[in-house]
Amino acid sequence: MDPKSLRNYIYIIGGPIVIILVWWIFSAVNTMFEDPLISPLFLADPFAVLQTTISLFRADTIETDIFNTLRRVLAGFLLGAVIGVPLGIIIGYFRRIGDALEFIIDFFRSLPAAALFPFFIMVFGVGEFSKIGVAAFSSSLIILVNTTYGVRGVKELRLMAARLFKLSNAKIFYAIILPESFPHIFAGLRIAISYSMILVIFTEMFIGTETGLGKRIIESQEVYRTAEMFAAIILAGILGYIINKALLFVERRMITWEGKA
């Protein structure tokens, strides 16, 4: 390994280590006082969190939570993509339809999706679909808007070249418009999966959920199992991070030309 990349790794690993160290020192010092700044009941030190995490995995209970959260995030996200991408393409391609729907889309995009959750529960019940539905609602709008921008942003010169080649509309669509809007579509997908994650964790905290990281967080908070709460929060963070990186990996594989042309 050359020294430059070694130094990079030191920085990359060093940052999180410093933060954990600060956390550990703070919680250690905190417990030394007779009248601590934060009650130890609300603050778990990193080792307790780590121990709890290990025991949660040993007990084979947290996997179900992670799996169910992941399942809902992906379901909401995919449903959003299935709705958002084709609609975005139609709205971007047919300008008149876009003009007609612009206000409605802007309105729903400005509406925090979480505000719709009670309504979704009313309509779909407390089961799975109300959670997935809210995530899908939010995802689809973000994906739709980004796809529309992508389709509308196709370079005029490329379309001109295609028309001079007398390509059919279908060919122009899948040989030029679609690949050219991929970077925008993917940007939408990445924002959407984060939103899906936020909304699933949030909705899991409500009544009617049996499993899920959101459920685990709220449940341990209610009974002051602080270490377990932190463990679930950190696991949710790790899950979100992995999902994002996975999507970025797919994006880099599919879109090699971004920012270069």
């Binding site: 005029e156 490329r158 001109m160 070249a161 001079l164 042309a261």
Partner: peptide
């Protein structure tokens, strides 16, 4: 057979 001045936006980078 058309050749444009702006080769970056007339060719397909993908």
């Amino acid at each position: 057979g058309f050749v444009f001045q702006d080769y970056r936006s007339s060719m397909l980078p993908w």
